[in-house]
Each structure stands twice: as structure tokens, then as C-alpha cells.
Write a protein that binds this DNA or RNA. Structure first.
Lengths: 188, 188
DNA sequence: GATGAACCGGAACTCAGGTTCCGAATATAG
DNA sequence: CTATATTCGGAACCTGAGTTCCGGTTCATC
């Protein structure tokens, strides 16, 4: 239980990274449909090695999604740095959706019905939720978003957009329409 | 090939209906996750009997979805009967989403990435697509919807709403927001 | 009612994909 | 350089879910 302190052997550490990278790529391409054997192959390792580092498929995916969420949190923080509240909100939404567009696995994690959702798990490790709340509040206060807009609505919009990410990029049109409906009295 | 004319034996016809009903209910509850054995059990029959009537799981699901689409087409036609274009559009959207809400299987069919999509297959058998187009056009002409709104946008909105049908009915709020963004110059 | 074709039941089969296991290989301490 | 704990590889195993098969049963006809 507490032996987690002994540092990994050099090769083990290297391999762990390889697995994470390979799984990340494949997961981004095809979501949950990736197979453990493929991951091992792409990493240039045997399946046994994959299992040495991650208890099971679920644990591996959780690790990847955690990674993604950390990156997302970083982007969100950057968006929050914008002076202009409207710009901050747009940038946040943009980065979020652009990531989802590029990563079927991310979408899978966000749209899937898993319980407890991976999002919840990841939220406990990052302050992604808080950042969203702050950015939304700023945009509302500035009149850029309608007064009753909430962080929960951000989730609604995002999920809707992701559901439309199938090949073509119709989803951009979708976001356009949606932003129209969500606009406040002073949209700059 | 042409022997499809000999009428089914009475018990066979009855059983076929039972399978369709049982599968329909289960599919509505849990989507693609239903198992053939469960379907057989709920229908009070053996699996063999299920397979006697449907070549495989896919064929069974296709039959069910076909049924749903016929019902939907009927509802859509009814909506189109409304004098008021705005009302017709709202009714259409409402019935469509209400059906999706009540039926995980329907959602599964509409959101899933299957290719060729079940929607396409079903569209060839009904004139659902044409009805949507007509209703949308009427609402646009009346100024109830923005001028550039298309039937494709109806699909975008619907998919977005369905992606938010998870337990709670947040999706109603979603539709509210979206309709705001899609409104025309003369929303009655 | 007897006869045969159509139909039914459900145990057994198949196949895919996650997981385990252990002998072989390798890194690190002394 | 040797000893030993770690780590690796990948064939074998296990499980779950779709599908098949065929002896028994039921309907329709004469």
C-alpha cells in the first residue's frame, strides 16, 4: 500500500509512457472500440506489459482521460485570462469543442452514460468546473450572455455540439445557431 | 425468393408479434444493450424461435426501428396538418423529441455511428424527410424561423437534444435556448 | 383422427476480446 | 561481474453474447 514510493525501473517507466501514448492515439481515433492487443502492438510491447502497468482496460482509459482533462483545464485557465469576458467565453467554448472534435475518446468519455461518469472522476482532480463557472459568470455579468445562463447550460451546449461531430463539421453551424439563442443584452 | 406469399401459420404469426413487442419494449428501455436471450424470455419463447423470424439481431432491431419510423412519420404528418406554420414546426419538434425521450432504442438508432445509418434505411421507406422539409419551409416562409434555417438544421437540433437526454430533463431547457437562436423576424 | 409440413425450445457451439500466468530477459545493487 | 528482484512477452485461458441445430411439438389438411 505504501510501497508506491520505490521508483520504477528505467525500462518500466519508459514502457509505461509508451503504453499511455499508444493508447491515447488509438483512443482518440476510435474511442472505446480500441482493443488491448492493438494498444500493446502500437506501443511495441506485449499485452502482459500493458497489464503490468494498468489493472484493466477501464483503468487505462481513466488514466488517458485524466490526462486530457488536465490539458483541458490548462486551456480553460488560459481562456479565463482574457480581459474581455465575451472573448474568454468564446475561447473556452472553442478550445473545448475543438479538443472534442479531434478526439473521439474524449467525446466518448463526455457523452457516454457510464456511471460514475469519467467526467466526475476527473473533476475531482482538477478545478475545471470552477473555471467554467467563473468564465460563465463573467460573461453573464458583462451582459454578453443572457442573465439566466449557467455553467450547466455550458454543458448542455457542449454535449449538443459533440453529438453532431460525425465526419462533416456541421457542428460549427450548430454552435452558431446556439450562440444566437444564448446572447445577452450587450453582446459587444 | 417468391415463396414469401404462403401465409404464416397462426402460432407463428402470433409469436412473431410477441417477439417484436418484447424486443420493442426492451430496446426502448436499454437500447442496443438488450440480449437475444432476454428478448426470447420476455416474449415467453425460446431463442430459436426468435431466430426463426429474424435472421440476426441486426435484422430484428432494423424491424423495430422501421416500426418506430412509421409511427413518427404519422405524427409528423399530423403536425403538418396544423394551419399555423409555427405551431406545425413546434409540434413536429415536440413529438419527435418526446418519442426520443421515451425510447432509448430510437435514440440509439438516431445518434449511433452505424453506416449505412438506420435512419437512411428507414427514410427510404417513409417520406419522413419530405415532411420535415415541408414543415420547415412553411415556418421559414412565415418568418417564424430565421430565413436560412434548413431541414438539416432540424437534424442538428434534434441530435443535440437527444445527446442531453440522460435521466433528468435538462434537454427541455436546451430546446428552449436553441429555439431562441433560431427564431425568425416574425415569431408570432 | 391421421399425416406431414411447419414450427418451437434450449442446450451446445462459436467467436471475439479482456485477462492471467509463468518462463525468459533485463536492470540495478553490492 | 554476480545475484536477485523487476519486468517483459505472448500463448493460453475465461467469459459473455450471438447463433446454430435438431429432436420434439403443434397446426392445417384430408
Amino acid at each position: 500500500m505504501s510501497a508506491s514510493e520505490r521508483p520504477l525501473r528505467a525500462d518500466a517507466r519508459r514502457n509505461r509512457e509508451s503504453v499511455l501514448d499508444a493508447a491515447g492515439e488509438l483512443f482518440a481515433e476510435r474511442g472505446d472500440a480500441v482493443q488491448m492487443d492493438e494498444i500493446a502492438e502500437r506501443a511495441g510491447l506485449g499485452v502482459g506489459t500493458v497489464y503490468r502497468h494498468f489493472a484493466d482496460k477501464q483503468a487505462l482509459l481513466a488514466a488517458i482521460i485524466g490526462r486530457r482533462f488536465e490539458a483541458m483545464t490548462e486551456s480553460a485557465r488560459a481562456a479565463d485570462d482574457s480581459e474581455e469576458p465575451g472573448t474568454a467565453f468564446e475561447e473556452l467554448l472553442h478550445t473545448y469543442l475543438e479538443s472534442a472534435q479531434a478526439d473521439a475518446g474524449f467525446r466518448f468519455a463526455l457523452l457516454g452514460p457510464e456511471e460514475p461518469s469519467w467526467v466526475q472522476i476527473a473533476s475531482e482532480k482538477t478545478d475545471f468546473g470552477e473555471i467554467i463557472e467563473r468564465v460563465v459568470q463573467r460573461a453573464v455579468d458583462a451582459g454578453w450572455l443572457r442573465a439566466d445562463f449557467s455553467a450547466q447550460d455550458f454543458v448542455l451546449i457542449s454535449r449538443g455540439a459533440m453529438a453532431n461531430m460525425t465526419g462533416a463539421d456541421d457542428w460549427r453551424r450548430y454552435v452558431e445557431l446556439m450562440l444566437e439563442g444564448v446572447r445577452g443584452p450587450d453582446p459587444q
